[in-house]
Every structure is written in C-alpha cells, then in structure tokens.
Design a protein around this nucleic acid. Structure first.
Length: 322
DNA sequence: GGGCAGGTGTAAT
DNA sequence: ATTACACCTGCC
C-alpha cells in the first residue's frame, strides 16, 4: 500500500525534483504505467508518485519513512507552507506572472554535505554528466542500500578515495576540490551543521574558503543544504531572468543581482530564485546579446539606477503577506 | 568533430 | 576590484 502525504497537495513533485536542486532522483514507470520518482535520501530509497495533486509515498511506507520524507520535502506542519510563500511572492508583479508557470516548487531539506559536493561537481559541467558523476561516486564509495541503490559517500570515504577512483567518476579537474572539501569535513576543521545556525554572510564566507567553492556553489549549499532561504544563487539562468525581467535586458554584475534579490525578496529570495530559474529554463532561451558579459557603463540607459519597481517594491511588503 | 556546459582558480590589469 | 583565460570530459 501507499500512504497519502498530508500537505503534499501544494507541492508539485516533478517541478521540485527537476528544479536543479538535486541530482539524485530518477523517474520510472510504476505498475499502473504512471511515473514514479525514485530517489535516495539518507539511507532511505523513496518511491513517490503524484497523480493530479495528491502526493503518495509508495515506499518505504513506514512511520519513520513518512516522517523523514515529510521533513525532506518540507511539507511538515512546522514548515512554512508553500501557498503562503507563493502568496507573499506574488506581491511582486514579475514573480506573480512567473508563478503561473512554476507554482508548487518547494525547497528540499537536503544533507548539506551531499549538496556541497554535488555543486562543486556542477561547476562548468552539464546536468547529465553531473548526474553520472554523482551516481558513480555513490556506487563506488557509498554504503549499499539494496535495490541497487547506494547512500551518498561519507566525508571519510571521499577523503580517502584514490585519484584513480575519482577520475573514474568523471570528476575531472574537480577531483582535488572534492577531496579537499572532504578532508576539511572529515578532519573536523569545518562543521557544516554549524553553518546553518550562523548568519548568512558569515556562513557564506566560511564556505568560500573551500577549494572549488565560489559564490554560486556557496549559495546553492546555503539554500539547498543549510536552510538559508535568503540565499540567492546566481547562475546563467537566474542572471538571464533577472536581467530580462527586471532590468530591461541590461547586463548586471553578480553583485548587483545579489543586492537586488536581497532588497526585493529578503528571506524569500531562495524561493524567488527557484521560480525564476525554472521559468528561465523553460521560457527564456539564450539570446545572442547575452554574451559577452560587459559591465554596465554609465550613460548606457541602464547605468546604476534602481530596478523598475512594481506597485509593491521591497521584501517588507512581500513578507507582510506571508 | 568542435563548442558547450547550472563556475572557479589564477594571473594580470 | 575587475577582467581574461584555462580547465576534465561527455553531450548535443
């Protein structure tokens, strides 16, 4: 039997799992022919389905499994409800339009270690290859969980891995970064869990000290692994969305985009980022004038001026609706 | 086949 | 503080 997940109806499972925050879910055909999402979370191999709106846990259908999945999906009663988040975000007229295509995206409560490694691997890489690398890492160094599934490797195992093995996982030049990060954690020089309780900027600085971790990877780790919902990772898609939807297509620096997101979305910036990212991937194709990047010049019409404000600019107006 | 891909490190302005 | 450039390697 399968269990209905209370609170799962506001979550769009497919959009959430395909929103670029995790690389460990795949889709299978269920017994009835419908799509089933299969993914490893910790030591659980979860199987989920969603027909219409209702979200079902197929396995492991146990009290513990239900509790851990509820926590992971962020649909526990204690969690901020998706409807209230989306209502608040819709105070921004641009996001309000975006939401029509992206409603239901949640932010998963992932293991920060897995997120950190995954996004170090993601640098200058493509998604199919990232998935292959993560899968090979788990098969080579992760604990077997049955069903041909493997847990994500511990820092210890990864710190001790041979270069040959990391190369076989297609890590390429990122292998030394991954191993250095693993040693930091394994040696106790860096405790990721502590970063979840630190102010965003402080935690970010600590992450930036890790080899292979730049601003984008740091922000992904903060948002997807450390519950810092005001983090706003800026990749090529989010940059494209912000520049086109808020700055008339004018180039902005990463710094400007960060500042914009903080001011406009505040503690909901991470959610706004997810919606803008998914919208951009689906509806904002690359344009020739996106590149090469050029710093904004004075007198180019854009300059250093503020973005166009909606009727309700600023996050205070936005969170007031939450 | 060659450029590209959810960036980052490094060296040189 | 900013700006080029290289980079493993499978994919399209």
């Amino acid at each position: 039997m399968a269990a209905l997940l209370p609170g799962g109806d506001a979550l769009d499972l497919a959009r959430t799992l395909q929103s670029g925050q995790t690389f460990r879910w795949r889709w299978e055909r269920g017994p009835g022919g419908g799509p089933v999402a299969v993914g490893v979370v910790g030591r659980d191999v979860f199987r989920l389905s969603q027909d219409g709106r209702e979200l079902w846990l197929i396995a492991p259908d146990t009290p513990g499994g239900r509790a851990r999945l509820t926590e992971y999906l962020g649909v526990s009663p204690a969690a901020r409800r998706i409807p209230s988040i989306e209502t608040a975000l819709a105070a921004d007229p641009v996001v309000a339009r975006v939401l029509a295509r992206t409603r239901g995206i949640g932010i998963l409560a992932q293991d920060p270690w897995e997120v950190l490694v995954s996004f170090i691997v993601s640098a200058n890489n493509n998604i199919p290859k990232i998935c292959t690398s993560i899968d090979r890492l788990c098969r080579a160094l992760g604990a077997p969980l049955g069903e041909g599934a493997f847990a994500f490797p511990t820092p210890d195992r990864l710190a001790a891995a041979r270069s040959r093995m990391l190369a076989a996982c297609l890590l390429g030049y990122r292998a030394p970064y991954v191993r250095a990060a693993a040693r930091l954690i394994a040696d106790g020089r860096l405790e990721l869990a502590r970063l979840a309780r630190m102010p965003l900027d402080t935690a970010r600085e600590r992450l930036l000290e890790i080899p292979g971790v730049g601003e984008k990877v740091a922000d992904c780790t903060l948002l997807f692994g450390l519950r810092h919902t005001s983090a706003f990772p800026v990749d090529v898609w989010v940059r494209r969305a912000v520049e086109r939807l808020y700055f008339r297509g004018r180039p902005r620096t990463a710094r400007q985009i960060q500042e914009f997101a903080r001011e406009r979305f505040g503690p909901l910036a991470g959610y706004a980022q997810q919606h803008l990212f998914c919208y951009a991937r689906a509806h904002l194709r690359p344009r020739a004038d996106d590149a090469p990047r050029r710093p904004p010049m004075r007198g180019d019409g854009g300059g250093a001026r503020r973005p166009d404000r909606g009727e309700l600019g600023g996050y205070r107006a936005i969170v007031a609706n939450a």
